[in-house]
Amino acid sequence: MTFKLYNYVLSGNCYKIRLMAALLDVAYETIAVDFYPGFEHRSPGILALNPAGTLPVLTSGDMVLTETQAMLTWLALTYDVTGTWYPVDDPERLATITEWLGFAGRLSQSAGLARLHDMLNWPADEKAVKAAAISDLRTLELHLNDRVLEGGLWIAGDGPTIADIACFPYTALSPDAGLEHDGYPAIRNWLYAVRALPGFVAMPGIHYLHDLKETSGD
């Protein structure tokens, strides 16, 4: 077995890993953790593995990873035969990727928390997290519009990288918190491009692109 993922189906952070693994066509084992309503991530078993009690947790052999950015990096370096998802030979591009991995972490604290609040009644300062989420969406939109002006599409360089995967879930899921994508055309088109990637998998709140299927009804 390649690796084990301690997984919660509604978590955008867990989804980053499921999506990356699917795009790299890597099979793995999932262990479902009853985050809600069971609060199992706070159980002794999970805390022994990850004292922070966050999900996901990825293990492979003796290695235990608890930060999604680290997991994405490890997945790309281990399973990406093309070397394009985490291009180590391009310092500037790699730095841009790392920059947006950091941004993705902030996004889960803003848009991600706003979503948990609206969906599962999670305690949060609703006004503050939603304002932070809008500010983050605006930051991403500015950058992606720059990319469009440059004739590009992806966050860093000419193809998708782990930065796109890291930023995708909580951006795509922001409507779950009532933060629609209507005023963010560059984000909207980038989200579509990620969903159109070969091997893409969906999660609740993000639907498959049915338009890519063969036409029926003619």
Partner: peptide, 22 residues
């Protein structure tokens, strides 16, 4: 099936409906 998988199977389905309902 482990209990957590049962919960998540149903949650996955219901949350797919949520974005329709809204």
């Amino acid at each position: 099936t482990p209990y957590a998988d049962l919960v998540q199977f149903q949650q996955e389905i219901f949350l797919q409906d949520r974005s329709i309902l809204e």
